[in-house]
Computed example of a mutant assay.
Amino acid sequence: MELSGTTLELLRLVEELRLGREGCRLDPSGNPTPYSKALSSIKVRRTSGPVLVSVSSDHEILEIQGGVEEVEMLAATVKEFAAEGEYTSHLHVEYLPDHEFLSPNSEPLVVALVE
């Protein structure tokens, strides 16, 4: 799954992650190619332990849950990418053995920087 946005939009996402808000509306009107659908919102939920990235059963909501420290590590990773990445570049957020903050059950996420 891919989450794309401008630098400003990705920095807003960082703030949503840090605040742990229940929902952040997305604009699903864009062309999701090569994917079949655009998501309508992001839901951040504070739990404990590693970050779990998933999609709701109705395929409408990107769900991100995890402990405060682990979600902060995800936020810092996205912030660094948004601040230093080049347009059309992307960041892979996916579990590898001994990952610092992701759950092994987390779905792979590509964060893309657009103009």
Rank of each mutant, 00 (worst) to 15 (best):
L62V: 15
L74I: 10
Y87N: 00
A82H: 02
L113M: 00
K79H: 02
E22C: 11
S54I: 00
L91R: 05
E69Q: 14
V53A: 06
T77L: 06
E115W: 02
P32K: 13
N31E: 10
G85R: 02
S89G: 03
A76K: 04
S56T: 02
E2Y: 11
T77M: 04
V14Y: 00
E86D: 06
P108S: 03
A38F: 12
L3Q: 05
L8D: 05
R45M: 15
E72L: 09
R46N: 07
A83T: 08
L13V: 09
S4Y: 07
L13A: 08
V14L: 03
G49A: 11
L17G: 12
R21K: 14
L62G: 11
V71F: 04
L96A: 12
F81I: 01
L52Q: 02
F101P: 05
S48L: 08
P104G: 11
V110N: 10
E9Q: 04
R25E: 13
S103M: 06
S48D: 13
L26C: 11
V111Q: 03
P104F: 04
L26W: 11
K43W: 12
L52V: 09
P34G: 07
L13W: 04
L74P: 00
G66F: 04
L102S: 00
L91V: 12
E86F: 02
R25S: 14
E2I: 10
Y95N: 10
T6Q: 00
H59V: 06
E9T: 01
I42K: 08
G67P: 13
P108R: 02
P34V: 08
V55H: 00
E107S: 13
L8S: 07
T88K: 02
H90L: 07
A38C: 15
E22S: 14
P97L: 10
I61W: 10
R25F: 14
S29W: 12
